[in-house]
Amino acid sequence: MSYVQMNQVSKAFQEQKVLDSIDMQIKKGELVTLLGPSGCGKSTLLRILSGLTALDSGTIHIDDKDVTPIEPKDREIGMVFQSYALFPNLTVTDNIAFGLEMKKIPRDDIRRAVGEMIELTGLQGKERAFPRELSGGQQQRVALARSLVTKPKVLLLDEPLSALDAQIRKNLQQQLRSIQRELNMTTVLVTHDQEEAMAVSDHIYIMNAGHIAQHGAPHDIYTQPRNEFVARFIGSYNVWSAEALGRIAPQVEHIGSKLYAIRPETFCAQPLEGGLAVTGTVSSVTMLGNITRMELNVQGQHVVVDQIHRASDWANVGDSTTVYLHPKDVIPLHDATA
């Protein structure tokens, strides 16, 4: 039985449909990510779940209770905003205590709960600081502590890490995930960063233009994209038409899809047993840190090849080169079945 259930949720802003009959199930204690490009409706879906935005049609159940008509303040949902929305006039302690004070919890219990949260989020020594005196990462942790202290049923995170620089972001991703696991907190994360989604999620919903393009565990989504959008968004896949595939690799059995996806890193520089040889002209070579990306022109088809970076054995622009591909790595995209 799922803990959070959304059925046929739709929303339009001024005739513009932003969410179209969304269904979603979230298990208790799961971290689910809504992933998609900006404007795909993921933040709107999150706001609808929180009650801050009203839905046009559909229902939302949390813990077997229909929360659709319930106001945000009574939904028992915690939310970390992209801008954190910390109260500038209150100290770290008072910010975290705010939700408990609203619930009229006894003072001693508040002090204890806030203390625990400060420890959990590693904010010791900052209790009396005001939000403006904190770094971005610290503010983010205060926002997290403030939403967790009331023990919400669901925690919503709206691009909580997007304003931070890469180093801190990686660090906080791990912290976030370990805190979420420790508290077994059902969490919905919104992000446009597929690496972040892959790193922290139990389950990913990929959204595009108000629809769910695909959902599943990170590994399944990455290895089995269902359509061109997911293939391109999640792993910068090469997407070939059936006709191009027939031209480049006639040996691959056609199984009736219009489009096929091939991950750039499945190409191999050495001949493979049962592998196909793909020969083309190098149009560019780019160093991306630990991998090198080579773009080939194979009979008019643009092909992207990623290889773990090695010192020298790469072709130069203009050279003709051959890479090898295993037929099992050619993934038919089902949603484009002919």
Binding site: S50, L52, E71, P72, K73, D74, R75, I77, G78, M79, F81, S83, A85, L86, F87, P88, N89, F98, G99, M102, K103, R146, S147, T150
Partner: peptide, 25 residues
């Protein structure tokens, strides 16, 4: 706007959020 939303999700009524969060700021 964001401050009100944050306060409401933490269980404050609009009136309370206005007095406790908006007015002091």
């Amino acid at each position: 706007g964001s401050l009100m939303e944050a306060a409401e999700l933490l269980g404050a009524s609009r009136m309370k959020a206005f007095i406790r969060v908006i007015v002091p700021n």
